[in-house]
């Protein structure tokens, strides 16, 4: 019983609200499992934004022009902002920022496996923007309609900003695709390396699900992994033609009857291996985050000391 209402009744009225497309807000009653699912999902999403700065930060000092450098800096700064919007949304559910950061740094929390792949050439900045951000946007557009109000609002803001990320990525590849033979080769190589990991971002096939999908019922998610992946493939298979490049899948073929592209089998062994921590950069990414956090400690301490000193000063003078 909560305030005289029995839990099954609360759960029913909660689900009724969701069925009627009424958003859930922080102080509303919600099942503990809904709260827990959201905290996990939103914080992982936030961590992905933060860790996602690393593969791109790798190229800021080596961007080929001042314009490209300014754009890349702006993009990486956006990712930091997106991390903050999401951390704030998760905090409305009762977790703390410190707890989430601790969980990331200790290796307990997860983030998207895509960021455990290395960015080897400048063309990767293009492929990351076009394919990785492109795949993320498919999810994020869907999440603009998620049932939890603060998460949905954060997503709306993020989607507005992400559109530039994908466009600048495509523009990098477009420029390379019209360049020298070496530049064209670099462009194709980058697409070859990022294509399959991008498809893995959507998660395992729907048929591999072992439980009924509560997230869909709660409208935390509104489309399945396979639906989103197919939409992404259909979109990219057309866009790649403009680059005069190819996608590294010999089975990729338009299927008139389905109205979609057919595609080859994803290497799920590689997928689970990276999720479990054995990707090319898992260790390096976490070490970079830990180092940045440790080296920033004095800044956090100094700011807190300064704020304390000022408020003590104010109290003395008010008295």
């Amino acid at each position: 019983m909560i305030n005289g209402t029995r839990i099954p009744e609360l759960e029913k009225s909660f689900q009724d609200k969701i069925d009627a497309e009424v958003k859930i807000e922080p102080k509303d009653w919600m099942p503990e499992a809904y709260r827990k699912t959201l905290v996990r999902q939103i914080s992982q999403h936030a961590h992905s934004e933060i860790v996602g700065m690393l593969p791109e930060g790798n190229w800021i000092t080596r961007a080929p022009s001042l314009k490209r450098k300014a754009v890349l800096l702006a993009k990486v700064q956006d990712e930091a902002g997106h991390g903050l919007y999401l951390y704030s949304a998760a905090e409305t559910l009762g977790t703390s920022r410190q707890q989430m950061i601790d969980d990331l740094l200790s290796g307990k929390a997860k983030y998207s496996s895509i960021f455990n792949y290395p960015t080897l050439t400048w063309a990767d900045m293009g492929a990351v923007g076009w394919l990785v951000d492109g795949a993320a946007i498919m999810n994020q557009v869907m999440l603009c309609r998620t049932s939890y109000g603060p998460y949905a609002r954060a997503m709306v803001r993020i989607c507005k900003e992400e559109s530039f990320h994908q466009r600048q990525g495509f523009e990098i590849l477009l420029t390379l695709s019209q360049g020298t033979d070496a530049q064209k080769a670099m462009c194709q190589d980058s697409i070859n390396r990022w294509w399959w990991p991008s498809l893995m971002m959507f998660g395992p096939k729907d048929s591999d699900s072992t439980h009924s999908d509560q997230s869909m019922k709660w409208k935390v998610k509104r489309k399945t992994n396979d639906q989103l992946r197919q939409e992404f493939i259909d979109m990219i298979a057309e866009q790649v033609k403009i680059l005069n490049m190819t996608l590294p899948d010999k089975d990729l073929k338009w299927n008139e009857a389905r109205g979609h592209y057919d595609f080859g089998e994803i290497n799920w062994e590689e997928f689970w291996n990276v999720v479990k921590g054995n990707g090319p950069c898992n260790k390096q990414r976490l070490e970079a985050r830990r180092k940045a956090h440790a080296e920033g400690a004095w800044v956090r301490e100094a700011a807190a000391a300064y704020a304390n000193k000022k408020s003590a000063h104010l109290k003395t003078h008010a008295a």
């Binding site: 999902q41 999403h45 997860k110 455990n116 479990k276």
Partner: peptide, 12 residues
């Protein structure tokens, strides 16, 4: 899904 990896799976 992207942004929701079960606790049981190891991270970084």
């Amino acid at each position: 899904y992207y942004g929701d990896i079960p606790d049981a799976q190891g991270a970084g």
